[in-house]
Amino acid sequence: MNNRLKVLIVDDSAFFRRRIAEMLEEEQAIEVVGVAENGHEAVEQNRLLRPDVITMDVEMPVMDGITAVKTIMAEQPTPILMFSSLTQEGARATFEALDAGALDFLPKQFYSAEGRKAAAEVLIKRVLAIGQRHGKSQQRVHAGVIKRSEPKAESTTRAGAYKLVAIGASTGGPVAVQKLLSSLPAGFELPILVVVHMPGSFTTAYAERLNMQCSIAIKEARDGDRLEAGQAYVAPGGYQVILERQNQEVVIREVVIRIVEGDGRISYRPSVDVSFGSAARLFTDKVLAIVLTGMGADGKQAAKLLKEGGSTVWSQDEESCVVYGMPQSIEKAGLSDRVLPLDDIGPALSKVV
């Protein structure tokens, strides 16, 4: 029986279709079952081939990627990984595709920036992650799933004790963060630091989009920004974000955001560990940190620092994650005070704050 993950590749460039197919076919667990040159062909091939995952270009003739995603999600929902150019227009179109139902994205330039071998690893891991997540959901296989935890007494009696909310995410993060922030009321009282693994050219458009969609104010963080109550700051892609105090007393208005190049040995820019770690050192027991969907374990080390200082850590539950890597690492290490489905995090956050 063939248990390989079936992938449909959609792109109007024959070169890119061939390049993606070659990379994916290096993985024995993946089978490329078809290709399509535009969105219309993608819809037809999805009906015929019933792939487990679709890789989809944003800009195509006949039918563009966004329209194709909407049609596929209405007819026969399938996990979709978008590819887009590293431009402001490409970023905006990608976020429209995510709104339409795509699960994640990669910039088309990933294969030239990473090198052949590293690029193939990135692509394969991303496709397997969203494909396997979909398979579990479809088959309702939840063996070994960590059950949702009830809030500990400490996390429900500290209302008003926090000075900062810190949110970290990776794969599936842009949509998850949008859902969380859009559920917060206009009068939300704390500053929020948002760290999502994303290219630099995307975070500006992402922050602008969130600011239009949410009741709270949202901006891309800039070096020298002072934390303001009720303001969310999106860490810019390609850099590390750390928090510094301007004097001995940790007053919100005296805390400044610093944007730095960071250590080349750290894989992620921005890194949840780096930003959360600076918050742990600055605010000790006054941080409410939330780890959302994502591959890997970025955030785990900083969560340990936060817990040691007396701060609170929440994590997203497996069923609502696109990829249960980052939240799982937090929960398995015993660092999560609450494990919550995505739709419950915003209301719970508003209640506690």
Rank of each mutant, 00 (worst) to 15 (best):
A29P: 00
E154Q: 11
Y111L: 13
S84Y: 03
V196F: 03
R245D: 06
S149R: 10
Q109P: 00
T284I: 14
L5E: 04
V241C: 02
V353F: 13
Q139M: 07
P79N: 03
K307W: 11
L181C: 04
E37G: 12
A232P: 05
S278L: 00
T156R: 14
I9M: 03
D64K: 07
L349F: 02
M295R: 03
A303Q: 07
G65Y: 01
A97I: 02
R222F: 12
G101A: 09
Q316H: 10
D12N: 12
G115Q: 10
Q316G: 10
A68L: 04
V62H: 10
Y162Q: 06
P191M: 09
F15A: 11
G294Y: 01
V195K: 04
A118M: 04
G200I: 09
D343H: 03
V194Y: 04
G296V: 01
S320Q: 14
M23N: 07
T293G: 02
L49E: 02
S275T: 15
A235W: 03
E121F: 09
L243V: 10
V272M: 05
V323K: 08
L243S: 06
P185E: 15
S13L: 12
S315I: 05
G294E: 01
L306S: 03
S85T: 14
V122G: 00
S278M: 01
L288H: 04
V195A: 03
V352M: 12
F202I: 11
T87W: 09
K179H: 15
G299Q: 07
Q213A: 10
I124K: 13
D52W: 05
A153D: 09
N211P: 07
E27A: 13
S329W: 08
R269S: 08
D64A: 09
T78V: 14
I216C: 08
S112Y: 14
K304S: 11
E244T: 03
I9N: 01
Q231A: 13
S271E: 10
P327D: 08
P51T: 13
E220L: 00
F283R: 06
A102E: 01
D99A: 11
S137F: 15
V145E: 15
E154A: 05
I218N: 06
E189R: 15
G224T: 07
A143C: 09
Q178A: 14
M82T: 04
V260E: 08
E114G: 00
A348K: 07
D52G: 08
M198W: 06
M73S: 05
I242A: 02
H40W: 12
A207E: 02
L81Y: 08
G309H: 03
P347N: 04
V260A: 08
L180W: 05
Q28L: 14
R116D: 13
Y239S: 14
R50I: 15
S137Y: 11
L340D: 01
Q178W: 13
E254K: 15
T312P: 00
S85V: 11
A161Q: 15
V291H: 04
E318N: 01
E25K: 13
D285L: 12
R226K: 15
S201R: 11
A235G: 07
T87I: 10
A205M: 01
A297R: 14
A42S: 09
S271D: 12
M198R: 06
V196L: 12
R209Q: 06
V353N: 11
V196G: 04
H40C: 12
A120F: 08
P236A: 12
